[in-house]
Structures are given as C-alpha cells and as structure tokens.
C-alpha cells in the first residue's frame, strides 16, 4: 500500500448518510457495466443538500455536471460518516469518482467494513473532527506511516489513528486478497 496519499480536499459535515453519498434511485445501475458504473461517479455525494456540499461555503458540487470524476481525492468529514444503509455502492461510488481516502473522527460500522473489505477507499480516523481546519479545495497529504494529515495551505498537521487490525486487509487490497494471502481460500 502507498502510505502517502495526496490530493484536493472536499469538506463535509456530520452524519453524512449513504443516501447522501449515493441516492437510492441510482442503485439500479450495474457496477459491472462500464457505462453504468460511471453513473456512480457522476452521482457520488449528489444527495448532500447543496448548501452543505463543500464546506465551509457550500454550494460546490462534488462532481461537475456531466462528469463522472471528481477533482477531490480526499474527503474530510464530521462524525458518523456513512451511516444509514448497508449499500456497498456508497464507498464504491466514492472510489469511482476518484476518492482515495476519507478522514473522519468516526464512521458508521457497515460503511467502514465495506470500504475496507471491498478495498474501495481508506477510512482514516482522525483524533478529533477536522472539519474546521480544512476548506474545500485545500491540498492535503495523508501519511499512513507516521499517521498524520497535513493541510498544505495552512501547514497545520493533525494526528490520525492507526488502522489497527484491519490494516492487513487494507494493505492486501480487500478481504479476498487478504484471505488468499492468508491461505484461507484458494488462488
């Protein structure tokens, strides 16, 4: 696993639920058809009320209209990110839009599992909410060797938690790769 992630930051508030990450009406598309799969990128975070989309100012679409990729590779969000349904389409949609990592103080359990086991995005836990310390469009660097995130605009650095027991799964790239490495399932 690359232990340093860099990119532009998109900032969101608390309790961003899976309906905001990918509204239920779009779940009909197949993740296996390339054309349909792109729709998940196109509609990623489209359920966030527009005044809350891209804090602190809001009114910033995560993905420009008609596009399926977002300019933002890092999401900085408040507590309980990914609450709501068990839809794996949520972390998948973020990945399809180009997100590499989310940084939030806490996650909803199923979102966290899905992000890790599917190898979609890395759910990094910050020690405290960093929403006040980032603005949408800032550049940031996440270091998963020394466990911090740095805001390149302000130069401020914040500690993040170690990945702990799931690190092996994240490093392998998901639960299947992990189980193969561990000899639990065949090649």
């Amino acid at each position: 696993m690359e232990t340093i992630k860099q990119g532009k930051v998109f900032v969101l508030g608390d309790d961003i639920d899976t309906d905001q990450i990918i509204p239920a009406a779009h779940l009909v598309y197949s993740l296996d058809h390339p054309d349909e799969k792109r729709k998940y990128g196109e509609f990623a975070l489209s359920g966030v009320p527009i005044d809350k989309s891209g804090l602190p100012d809001g009114n910033i679409p995560f993905v420009a209209s008609g596009q399926s990729e977002s300019p933002y590779a890092i999401i900085v969000a408040g507590k309980n990110f990914g609450c709501g349904s068990s839809r794996e389409h949520a972390p998948a949609a973020l990945q399809i839009a180009g997100v590499q990592a989310v940084v939030a103080p806490t996650y909803a359990r199923i979102f966290y599992r899905n992000a890790v086991d599917g190898g979609f995005v890395i759910p990094v836990e910050s020690q405290a909410s960093l929403v006040e310390h980032f603005q949408t469009g800032d550049k940031a660097e996440i270091n998963l060797t020394d466990y911090f995130i740095r805001n390149q605009r302000t130069g401020e650095t914040f500690p993040v938690k170690k990945l702990g027991q799931v690190e092996n799964i994240i490093e392998a790239g998901g639960i299947f790769a992990y189980a193969r490495q561990a000899g639990m399932i065949g090649e």
Binding site: S86, R87, E88, P91, I110, R113, N114, D117, G118, G174, I175, F176, A179, M184, I185
Partner: peptide, 18 residues
C-alpha cells in the same frame, strides 16, 4: 446484522466472515 456485497460474496463462497 447487515453487511455489504463484498462481505456477502465472501460468505457465499466460504460460509464464514470476520
């Protein structure tokens, strides 16, 4: 409890999950 599609696929193949 609920799980995502990848975990469900893992269970479908192995009958196990962490």
């Amino acid at each position: 409890t609920g799980v995502g599609n990848t975990d469900a696929a893992f269970i479908l193949g192995t009958g196990k999950i962490w």
